[in-house]
């Protein structure tokens, strides 16, 4: 049976995290999840909007929810910050009729509390049978040591991420286990990467990225799996900045979990846009052809 969601890619997945978009679509297709992109969706406002004006943040999310509502579909967002904004807005409007009215006064098309919001991680964890994932595996990721990194928004706060324990989430490990990879214990899995401070205060991000990369090295991870565009960017894009500042020599590829799934499902590294990462992923599983097919 096909599962169907209103798809909210979010701005990152249109630019710096395009490979997350591409791999999400491929993997969802493989797992019989139909994605209907919300037409003409707008930015959720991310952190800055709610740091400037909470109502603004809610209204931006509410417009997207109202659009999805007309399709009678629940919403799925791969970016956990988008998920956080959309779901918090949804919960607040469902909780407080006055708030809903105020928000609808700001919108052209009102929202009627008719959808539920899930993250990609939640959908893969709750809606997809682990057996199905096993069935789709063509090239097991044997011998690949993967550290699962959730960051903040894939774990907290508890009422948004209510499908797992915020202190020790295991959804990513459980989704990736059927791929045959070796999942290492990563003690900093819910630590913060510095989020959006990369623009104005890169020093804050580098310090946290350094801690995260140091721990990944210590636990012997070949690759860090992520499910968040900001986590990916702060650890991948900025890995050379970290190396420059701290005199380190980290060389740890940071892959979206959908890219790892895609690889195991037999998609080429080119299809999965693996070549777009700063830190190249060279330890490809199974067939060596995958390495050479990686475009430069």
């Amino acid at each position: 049976m096909t599962i169907k969601y209103a798809y909210y890619p979010g701005c990152s997945l249109e630019s710096l995290a395009r490979e997350y978009n591409v791999s999400t679509r491929l993997v969802c297709q493989d797992l019989d999840i139909e994605l209907v992109e919300i037409p003409d969706w707008n930015c959720c406002g991310a952190a800055p909007a709610c740091q400037v004006d909470h109502m603004l943040s809610s209204a931006l999310s509410a417009r997207n929810l109202a659009l999805a509502e007309s399709f009678k579909l629940n919403v799925m967002a791969p970016c956990p910050k988008c998920f956080n904004r959309l779901k918090e807005a949804d919960l607040e409007m469902k909780d407080n009729p006055d708030h809903l009215r105020e928000i609808n006064n700001l919108l052209e098309k009102p929202y009627h509390k008719g959808v539920q919001v899930k993250s990609l991680l939640q959908v893969l964890y709750q809606d997809v049978d682990r057996e199905l994932i096993s069935c789709r595996v063509k090239i097991p990721l044997e011998g690949l040591r993967v550290a699962c990194y959730y960051g903040c928004m894939n774990a907290r706060p508890a009422d948004i991420n209510d499908f797992q324990n915020p202190e020790d989430p295991t959804s990513m490990e459980e989704i990736l286990a059927p791929l045959g990879a070796e999942l290492v214990d990563y003690p900093l899995k819910t630590y913060c990467c510095g989020a959006a401070f990369g623009l104005a205060r890169v020093d804050l991000v580098l310090r946290l990225a350094n801690e995260l990369l140091e721990m990944a090295t210590l636990v012997g991870a070949d690759v860090i799996a992520v499910a968040c565009p900001l986590c990916q960017q702060n650890l991948d894009l900025r890995q050379l900045q970290v190396n420059a500042r701290y005199g380190t020599r980290y060389n740890i590829p940071i892959l979206y979990l959908t890219q790892l799934m895609g690889l195991a499902f037999g998609h080429s590294s080119k299809e999965l846009w693996l070549d777009k990462h700063f830190v190249k992923f060279r330890k490809l599983p199974g067939a060596t052809q995958a390495v050479s097919s990686g475009a430069r």
């Binding site: 930015c43 406002g45 800055p48 909007a49 400037v52 603004l56 931006l60 401070f197 104005a200 205060r201």
Partner: peptide, 23 residues
């Protein structure tokens, strides 16, 4: 911190202008 304020406001302005972020 004026830089952070600026980053936040630039971000919000981008949303206001285009509806999405123009990175």
């Amino acid at each position: 911190d004026h830089k952070i304020r600026l980053a936040q406001e630039t971000f919000v302005n981008s949303v206001a202008r285009y509806g999405r972020i123009f990175e």
